[in-house]
C-alpha cells in the first residue's frame, strides 16, 4: 500500500509512478462489459467489430482504459484526496495492447484553504500511440 503522501512532498514536474498493464486481452473486455454494463458488441464480438471496420477485431472500452489510468492515479494519490479526474479519448485501444500510464505534476497551489495539485496524465500503447490524455486534481494534507 502507498505510504501517506503530503502536499510538501509533491512538486511541479514530479513524475507520477508509471503503470504498465497488458496485454489487454478480449477476456478482460468481457469482464469489463459485465462489471460496467456496457455490452456494445464492438468490445466483445470480433465479427461485428470487423464488419464495422476494426481490422483487428474488438477494441477496448474507452472507460476501461480510463479505469487503468485511475488505477495508476490512486496507486499514487489515495482516492480520498481526489477532487477531479478528466480525460480525452485520443485513440482506440486494440486488443492485446500493452498500456503504459505516466504523468507529471503540472501545478501546485493553495486555493480556498485547500492544498491542490494538478497532474497531467497520458496513456500510450506499446507503439507509443496516445490513447488518453487527461488531468486530475487532488487536495493533499499538510505534514
Amino acid at each position: 500500500m502507498a505510504e501517506q503522501i503530503y502536499f510538501e512532498d509533491v512538486n511541479v514536474g514530479d513524475a507520477m509512478p508509471e503503470l504498465v498493464k497488458g496485454p489487454l486481452q478480449k477476456l478482460q473486455f468481457v469482464m469489463y462489459a459485465g462489471a460496467s454494463g456496457d455490452f456494445n458488441p464492438l468490445h466483445n464480438d470480433d465479427e461485428f467489430a470487423m464488419a464495422v471496420g476494426m481490422k483487428n477485431g474488438v477494441i477496448s472500452h474507452g472507460m476501461l482504459v480510463m479505469g487503468v489510468v485511475g488505477q495508476a492515479v490512486t496507486a499514487w494519490i489515495p482516492q480520498k484526496f481526489l477532487k477531479k479526474f478528466g480525460v480525452r479519448f485520443a485513440g482506440m485501444t486494440q486488443k492485446n495492447s500493452t498500456i503504459t500510464v505516466s504523468g507529471a505534476v503540472a501545478d501546485k497551489r493553495v486555493e480556498g484553504g485547500e492544498n491542490i495539485i494538478s497532474c497531467d496524465v497520458i496513456a500510450k500503447d506499446e507503439n507509443g500511440d496516445v490513447k488518453i490524455t487527461g488531468r486530475f486534481e487532488a487536495s493533499l494534507p499538510n505534514k
Binding site: 500500500m1 498493464k21 478482460q28 469482464m31 469489463y32 459485465g34 462489471a35 460496467s36 472507460m63 476501461l64 480510463m66 479505469g67 487503468v68 485511475g70 488505477q71 492515479v73 490512486t74 496507486a75 489515495p78 482516492q79 480520498k80 481526489l82 479526474f85
Partner: peptide, 30 residues
C-alpha cells in the same frame, strides 16, 4: 476493480479500506 485489474486492497477488502482511513471500500474513480 477486478475487471480493471486494480489490485489496490482498499477497493477489494473492507478491512484494508478501514485501515487506510476509509469507512468501507470506496467506489473507484470511474
Amino acid at each position: 476493480a477486478q475487471a480493471i485489474g486494480d489490485p489496490n486492497p482498499v477497493y477489494l477488502d473492507k478491512n484494508a479500506a478501514i485501515q487506510a482511513g476509509y469507512k468501507d471500500t470506496p467506489a473507484t474513480p470511474t
